[in-house]
């Protein structure tokens, strides 16, 4: 474990917590007898969260952590896997099933056919992998899928008029975690002999590059202190 990877994992955890906070806000808001102004805005406007991206992430964790009970790495590793699995599936459940949260989900805008991402990633994993075993192919699939999982969310943000802060922070943290992982891979490449994982590195690089324009608009909205807005 190195500081870059720990920072990456903590940033990833933060992104999940921000999303859970947002869902909690929507839930508690509708509980009020009189909707406060913020609640009114929250309930009226769509949450800006893409269910498609959440479902892809649940699939990413389900296929990546198949070894959670067979290969014990460390207590930290197991706990984090359980947190990511538990949170990703519960977020999908909330947006799909929860009587209040689902109202804030705008399915007419979240129209990305994520199935078109799953199939090519699966085919690519069958062709390009480190070892042709069931677990390894699914693990590689999870890497390819995670690289593109943010696309439905980014497209939804382009369609969302006013992106609220929590959603913007969520996407930022999600992109930042993988950027920190790239630093971790560089560090491990120079400090650990034979540490070479081209598949992981290229997927991680593609994933981070997909956030490039979001990062640009996110930082310029911070600098100019204006609302985050993505050009359509």
């Amino acid at each position: 474990m190195n500081i870059f990877r720990l920072a990456g994992d903590m940033t990833h955890l933060m992104s999940v917590l921000v999303l859970l906070l947002k869902i909690h806000t929507i839930k508690s808001c509708a509980g009020k007898s009189y909707p406060c102004s913020l609640c009114f805005i929250l309930l009226e406007s769509s949450s800006g969260i893409s269910l498609k991206t959440q479902e892809l992430y649940a699939l990413v964790f389900a296929t990546r952590y198949l070894d959670i009970f067979t290969d014990f790495i460390s207590v930290y590793n197991t706990i984090m896997k359980l947190i990511f699995l538990g949170s990703s599936f519960s977020i999908v459940w909330y947006i799909r099933r929860h009587k209040i949260v689902r109202r804030s989900y705008d399915k007419d805008q979240d129209t990305f056919r994520h199935f078109f991402l799953v199939l090519p990633c699966l085919l690519l994993a069958l062709i390009i992998n480190e070892k042709f075993t069931f677990k390894e192919v699914l693990w590689t699939f999870s890497l390819y899928l995670e690289a593109v999982a943010i696309l439905p969310q980014l497209i939804l943000l382009q369609r969302t008029r006013n992106i609220d802060n929590l959603t913007g922070q969520y996407v930022f943290l999600l992109g930042a975690y993988r950027a920190l992982y790239i630093l971790n891979w560089i560090y491990r490449y120079f400090t650990e002999p034979h540490y070479v994982h081209w598949i992981t590195w290229i997927s991680g690089l593609v994933q981070t590059l997909l956030y490039a324009d979001f990062f640009y608009y996110y930082f310029s909205s911070l600098k100019n202190n204006v609302k985050l807005k993505l050009p359509a």
């Binding site: 990877r5 990833h12 290969d71 790495i73 070892k131 390894e136 992982y181």
Partner: peptide, 10 residues
């Protein structure tokens, strides 16, 4: 060896 095969990152 199997340790190498196990992916130690999240």
């Amino acid at each position: 060896d199997d340790k190498e095969a196990a992916h130690d990152e999240l």
